[in-house]
Design a protein around this nucleic acid. Sequence first.
DNA 1: TCTTTGAGTGAACATATGTTTACTTGCGCT
DNA 2: AGCGCAAGTAAACATATGTTCACTCAAAGA
Lengths: 217, 217
Amino acid sequence: MPNPVAHPEVTPLLNRGERKQRTRAALLSAALALMSEGRGFGALSLREITARAGVVPATFYRHFAQLDELGLVLVEESGLMLRRLLRDVRRTGLPPTAMLLTSVKIYRQFIEDHRAHFLFVVTERSGGSPVLRAAVRREESHFSREMALDSRQAGLMPGLSSTALEMTCSLVVGTMMFAASELLDLPKDQPQLEAEWVARFVRQLRLIFLGARAWRE
Amino acid sequence: MPNPVAHPEVTPLLNRGERKQRTRAALLSAALALMSEGRGFGALSLREITARAGVVPATFYRHFAQLDELGLVLVEESGLMLRRLLRDVRRTGLPPTAMLLTSVKIYRQFIEDHRAHFLFVVTERSGGSPVLRAAVRREESHFSREMALDSRQAGLMPGLSSTALEMTCSLVVGTMMFAASELLDLPKDQPQLEAEWVARFVRQLRLIFLGARAWRE
DNA sequence: TCTTTGAGTGAACATATGTTTACTTGCGCT
DNA sequence: AGCGCAAGTAAACATATGTTCACTCAAAGA
């Protein structure tokens, strides 16, 4: 009796919904892959994306009504990713001074691990499409607010008013984006450049926190 | 004797070279105009640009070998503009504390006056095309270095080592870009948002300078 | 077992694109 | 006055694009 299940004679390895999600994911990562080859989202064509995903152009419309919709999903995925980043930093515990270097290293690892998504975010946060730009900025400000909350909860920068703290966090987030865009452009065969990047980024953050400590309204 | 010049019976209003530069400029600002309508440089087509400039597609090749070449000229123009910005800030003289607000206001005016170029820079500094991105970053680092030079010469932040000063200036420049991208997205019919933008940006810079003052190697 | 459903196909379409070619036409030099 | 040079043109091309339609055919439900 080789087949334990009687009636569904061969159970398919993937059921219908799973298959659908599979090609959907293929479309999404095809778009990311094309962007990693050096173009903005607005410069991608539907046919390229479907070709890279290994499906026929018409299939695209089974998943998205237009290209922008795919872009918005990528923004959403990136937002999730950023929240995981915050969580990872949070869970290291909190030796308040050594935390800086640790956080930066986690950040660097995160950028490596989600290179394509970071590239997408950094490109589209100031990119051509207003709708994508707005969506990215929204995620960014969520991120910033959550960071402010964490900082207050951890007792970092206790002297700052609520608005000053938000202003500081937005400065930190801006610096993070700035740093990410620089890291993404480093040639990956020269590790000492990455070390310099870490050092520089840590210093910039330290400068900001020094400023926050000295802050008076 | 109605015509003072005897032989060139009608002197043309624009000579050959001037005419050429004229359509060249039309091509450049056509590209900027199209980008202002919400797309990255990489999403522009040669035919659109020429159509907007009021010439036929083939004319493009009389001025540039490829699209990227036009983009590089725009980067160059933007670099000149940034140098003018620095000069304008420099020439205000230097009451060292009130200078901050003044500089930010000059900056805001500059962004308004050169809106299209700023949009171009902000978009392409993290945009799709690696060659444009590199060119923008090069201008940016010139700008940063020049700012460091000015700061040292003006005696601002005297406690900082040379590398610390460069690191600080690059942080300032990053914050400027960040702020520019936010200003460019503000709806232009709500002036109080611009006032908030100024206030916020001034605070972020003040924070940075406070940090620089407290800096120890 | 039979039927329904819907993800993926293949072909067709109208339109847009980059690039080349031979051409016009008028400025500017001799 | 006459001629060359080059900026702009017009047309043609091969190719790429977005979108649609009727289709297949296997999984899921009856």
